[in-house]
Design a protein around this nucleic acid. Structure first.
Lengths: 144, 144
DNA sequence: CCATATTGCATAGCAGGCTATCCATATAAG
DNA sequence: CTTATATGGATAGCCTGCTATGCAATATGG
């Protein structure tokens, strides 16, 4: 009874995620972006002015992780944090003009990575792959 | 034309990998193991006495990443590094008795994580899921 | 044989995950 | 109102990725 890592969903998930991150990094680094920043931008392009708490919920990362990522994004001129009118604990995260300008090229890069990644799947599999990932994610979240 | 992260294979891959890592961590931390150490042990249980270079090739991580992981494993009493008889640059990585004793409980934990993760897939999908991940991995490696 | 290139490994420094704490502010209970 | 609890965020410290360097030892070409 050997445990074969190449048949282990968990091991393959880690390997696949590292390769996705590397592929995305290669394409968005020229824009001055990193993958962790990109996923925050995805939410802010959809709705600007979210709080850190909103972002934590939508991206399912820990609050401390988000705080650090936002620090780097502020440092890099992608966001500004403004006081919330009603709650002095909260800070609204707002996109800079620079971050707004990156939406088209960055999402194009991500779309291309996804296309290349799924290129070897049959059209049927390709369509169902995201649903399968979602099902696994749902199962693991339930386990938590 | 919005980019929906919940349909993006790359975003889902990252999310899934984080959840897998968390699920595995919960089960192997009581054994004194972390996920990065577990994948090294998988190779050493199969063949003890590999060099760092061997491990880098088999696990597809960078040499610096492996050097740091091996440092932590040595610190934690999981491995010892012995000089290579023929090449004074290389060091053979050898399991301690403690690491050998962890094979059964750790692989059981990983097997259970995989089973839970795939529980919501149909039996057919469940069988094909690892192959699909392998196909995506192959495509991304070719893109690299 | 000697100079050069290659290889095996270590280290520094960064990103992005995490847990554990702490602080300030809001909210709820009495 | 006052106290207690809950919430939003910051910070410290760890693990696991990465790139970039540097060093010592081996292999290779003349």
């Amino acid at each position: 009874m050997v445990f074969d890592k190449d048949d282990s969903a968990g091991y393959l998930a880690n390997h696949m995620a590292r390769l996705f991150a590397a592929a995305l990094t290669r394409r968005i680094a020229p824009l001055g972006l990193m993958p962790g920043q990109f996923m925050v931008l995805l939410e802010l392009w959809r709705e600007d002015g979210l709080t850190q708490r909103d972002l934590v919920e939508r991206l399912d990362v820990e609050q401390a992780t988000m705080a650090n990522t936002l620090n780097r994004m502020e440092r890099d001129g992608l966001i500004m944090r403004e006081p919330d009118a009603a709650d002095r604990r909260a800070r609204r995260v707002r996109l800079t003009a620079r971050a707004r300008a990156l939406e088209a090229p960055a999402t194009e890069a991500a779309t291309e990575v996804n296309a290349r990644a799924l290129a070897r799947l049959s059209p049927g599999d390709r369509a169902r792959f995201p649903e399968m990932l979602q099902a696994v994610i749902a199962a693991l979240r339930a386990d938590r």
